[in-house]
């Protein structure tokens, strides 16, 4: 059975602006969703809401393990990885320090240094890294702490061809191990996923929500 995520009647607002109206989907263990949509349609907002950073305007997000509801605090604190398009790194700390901190804070062991080719970067401060190197460093935390749901915001964007293949390998391994992935993308992922295309709400829906 494993874990599953259920999203029912989800509506999201940014300020007064209705972004997403009445979204429903269920995600099961071993499944991935590719999130498509034009710029500004609310892909990042949806991912941040699923991570628990934002409160939905309406609707419910619930997670289950073997059909038993998981408390939101447990779900957010121990079961989710979120990789934003802004890599969450402190510019004045070295790669090794950031890896150690992520491992200790998220409750895992330092891993993935070899696999993500981070060895030559360990002593560099993160502000000297290129966008692709930063992304690889962020990806290391996916390997260090085992979590059920990966929320990825354009994970491939800054990576080169070899590392795109590497990351898609990691994602497939995660799915094979019973994990779940929701990724906002513009280019299709190199493996089979379900597709969710976000559309702008109609003027009528927007008006109804503004009351």
């Amino acid at each position: 059975m494993g874990v599953s995520l259920r999203v029912e009647g989800l509506s999201l607002k940014k300020g007064y602006n209705l972004l997403i109206h009445n979204l429903n989907f269920t995600l099961k263990s071993g499944e991935a969703i590719s999130l498509y949509g034009e710029n500004g349609v609310g892909k990042t907002t949806l991912l941040r809401t699923l991570a628990g950073f934002l409160t939905p305007f309406a609707g419910a997000i619930s997670a289950y393990e073997n059909d038993v509801h998981i408390e939101p605090e447990i779900w957010q604190g121990r079961r989710i990885h979120f990789l934003g398009h802004h890599d969450a790194l402190s510019p004045s700390r070295t790669v090794a320090q950031e890896l150690k901190f992520h491992a200790d804070y998220l409750g895992g062991a330092v891993a993935g240094i070899e696999m993500l080719n981070l060895t030559p970067l360990l002593d560099l401060e993160t502000r000297y890294l290129s966008a692709g190197q930063k992304r690889r460093l962020s990806c290391a935390k996916l390997l260090m702490a085992k979590r059920s749901l990966w929320l990825l915001d354009e994970p491939m964007a800054p990576l080169d061809v070899d590392h795109r293949a590497l990351l898609s390998g990691l994602m497939q391994a995660h799915l094979a191990a019973g994990g779940m992935i929701i990724a906002a993308v513009h280019d299709p992922l190199p493996f089979a996923t379900r597709i969710l295309k976000l559309e702008r709400p109609t003027a009528k829906e927007r008006e109804a929500a503004s009351v």
Binding site: D87, A88, L89, S90, P91, Y105, G107, K141
Partner: peptide, 12 residues
């Protein structure tokens, strides 16, 4: 630096 994104997904 968006570090709060990581901090909030930890156990604390």
């Amino acid at each position: 630096d968006a570090v709060f994104d990581t901090l909030r997904l930890g156990p604390l």
